[in-house]
Amino acid sequence: MTLSKVDSQLSASPMAPETTFGRIVRFVTGNVGLMTLMILLSLLMLAPALWTIGLSLKSNEELMMGTDAVFSFPYTLKNYLDIFENSHVFGWLVNSLIVSGGMTFGVLAMSSLAGYAFARLEFPFRRTLFVIILMGLAVPEQAVIIARHQIFSELGLHNTHLGLMLPGMSMPFGVFLMTQFFKAVPKEIDEAAMLDHASRLQIFWKVLLPLTLPAQATLGILTFLQSWNDYFWPLISATDQDMFTLTVGIASSQQNFAQSEGLGFLASQAIFSALPIIIVYVIFQKHIVTAVAGGAVKQ
């Protein structure tokens, strides 16, 4: 009796008698409790990656005896040094950089030009073309990939960097995004430039394009990330080992995935190939989140 009195005096909401369950609920919904729970969950989220990092720092021989060796010294960088000896990995990294960089440049250039025209210029079939391009948003890669593969065979584009870049450059999202963005720029800016006798190309290049830099950043990050992580098209188009991208290359080299053998080496491959994108993520986190979230809603 006395105990419950004290209890109800201490409790923040004296309206209802506190049960143990009620107290747990209040602790979880209260800020400190909630954040403790969230920190624990975030550790759970990180656990798979931390486990892999741990394995990557252990010698393969030691891991053969049992993976609980992860929790004790000695640690070694040997697995990472072994990656550097696998001559292909650097080639794959370069391929990924060329393909993702080229695709990003292509998307930015073409989407900006098209977006400007759709937002500002009058020409025949403008609306019709825009609607047709928007309908392209609904076409998934799998619906076109068989025919696209045949067309690329005819053109001899398989196993070339250009062949890996071109399909990704067709994504209508860029045109849509840039059109929206150019529309948001006040027309008075063009008119002022027009009075100064600037040509259409000059207005586009010198006046409007610099204003669209935020949209360019969003679109650029999104395209680069998608290209870097793309798996399906490079898998069927790049059949020559020297033309693999990092994603396809690392996937191919783990085909002889044998139980615990070389476990440390496998783990180091996972970490190594994730490293470039993780560094980019840590630096540009805010932009990346906005870009990916914005991209998802419109695709």
């Binding site: 798979p48 990656a49 486990w51 892999t52 394995l55 891991l63 049992g66 993976t67 990330l225 870097w228 992580n229 798996y231 990092l246 994603t247 396809v248 690392i250 996937a251 783990q254 995935f257 139980q259 615990s260 476990l263 496998l266 783990a267 491959q269 996972a270 190939s273 994730a274 994108i277 993780i278 993520y281 990346i288 990916v292």
Partner: peptide
């Protein structure tokens, strides 16, 4: 932001039957 290759590599390592 990870590629499917990295994700599957991590999870295959986690799902290895004995270790």
């Amino acid at each position: 932001i990870l590629s499917v290759t990295v994700v599957t590599l991590i999870w295959r390592i986690i799902f290895i039957p004995n270790d």
